[in-house]
Every structure is written in structure tokens, then in C-alpha cells.
Amino acid sequence: MFLINCPYCGERDQQEFKAGGEAHIERPKQPTELSDDEWAEYLFMRKNIKGVQFERWNHAHGCRKWFNMVRDTSSDEIKAIYKMGEKPPSQ
């Protein structure tokens, strides 16, 4: 349980948010040309990092907007929050 600084609404309880998993997984540009292995990689395989991870969150019980977060999964400390489409901060 922690506080999240929504880029649109400000600081709110994590309970208002929905975690959307790993960020920056790009949808394949040519889906029809993908092999089964590449589909599995896109759909299912995750880094699941212990440490600093880039992820998507949704302010589900607030503005309902999506945004990105850099969070240390070993301590739940939030390192950075940035809007969709913005470049991730370099680590």
C-alpha cells in the first residue's frame, strides 16, 4: 500500500489505481507475419524484475487515465511517473 502521484489528479491512495503490468511492450507492427514464438513473447513473457521496473498504471477510480511509472518492486518505492507517450527517464 502506497501513495501514487497521478500526473492528472495529484497524490492519491494506491487503492484507487489498477496496475497494468510491464510498460513499453510494443504491439507488433506486422501481426500477420509473427511466428508463434514471437506471439508468445509479446503476449505472455514478462521481465518481472526484482528492482527497478517500468510499468503502466490506470487511475481506475479517478480520472481513468493511463500513465507510466518507474517503481522499485523490492521496496515499492516510486522513482518516477510520466505520461503515456513521453520518453521514459533514463536509469
Binding site: M1, Q15, N48, E55, T73, S74
Partner: peptide
């Protein structure tokens, strides 16, 4: 479970 990835062995109060 909580719905976010975490290795903290804690979890949320709610």
C-alpha cells in the same frame, strides 16, 4: 493478492 508486481512480502491493508 495485490494486483501489482512486488517482492516486498507485505501486501495492502485493504
Amino acid at each position: 493478492t495485490d494486483d501489482y508486481v512486488s517482492y516486498t512480502q507485505k501486501g495492502s491493508h485493504q
